[in-house]
Design a protein around this nucleic acid. Structure first.
Lengths: 119, 119
DNA sequence: CAGTATCCCAATCGATACTG
DNA sequence: CAGTATCGATTGGGATACTG
């Protein structure tokens, strides 16, 4: 039984803990407007080992940022998609992305990653 | 001699690395519109040991988010304040703060920390 | 006053191999 | 296909004591 004995919580730490994980921002990004299976995420984020990918997905799920759907079929199939909460956090990710891009450009660095705006 | 051999950088990771450190957001928050000395920051963030506070301040300085001014006097005096870059990142911190506050409130948790908006 | 220096424990993360 | 299990290297971070 969980009992949170801390009466007060820092909003900034709360948010950062939810999106600050090693591959969390990347996962949320890839799931924008899309439902993806575990194997598809693995191909999109090859630098993450299955262990890490599973761990990050579980934490995102615990924080209710994504939905995990298991289909009782063989071979197994599991779908991941953003929850409403996950959708609501996207503007923050975009603000962070925009600031980071400006910063990199101003420092003569090429800004690029698996995250790109399609619209 | 440092040589960054990666041609491309992820903007989101770049931003998160700059503000995601254990006490970095808190430090940036306290320095808003204020110049503070090391000892003042210690009193404002007592949970950070001097080692950790120094480390976080050094990293913020390396990322040019804050300015460190040493006065050649005895006893020593060192001032910390936001740089222009540090000021420019504040809207992101506020967006993160706002989202986190909404999230905590919707989950029946009391949102609070050393970070509060004065205006 | 503004830090350093040590020591040491805990959490993070990667590599690899294995399974229902 | 969608994960687990295990091991080990690296990093993070706290406690305490010391210094120019």
């Amino acid at each position: 039984m969980d009992c949170n004995c801390n009466a007060y919580h820092c909003p900034v730490d709360t948010t950062l803990n939810m999106i600050g994980g090693k591959y969390k921002a990347l996962i949320l990004w890839h799931l924008t407007d899309k439902t993806l299976r575990f194997g598809e995420l693995r191909k999109l984020i090859p630098q993450a080992t299955p262990k890490m990918l599973t761990q990050q997905l579980r934490e995102l799920e615990e924080n209710h940022l994504i939905n995990r759907t298991v289909f009782p079929v063989v071979p197994p199939r599991v779908d991941y998609c953003l929850s409403d909460l996950g959708i609501s956090i996207r503007p923050i990710l975009e603000a962070i992305y925009t600031w980071g891009t400006d910063y990199l450009n101003q420092n003569g660095l090429e800004a690029s990653c698996s995250m790109t705006f399609s619209s």
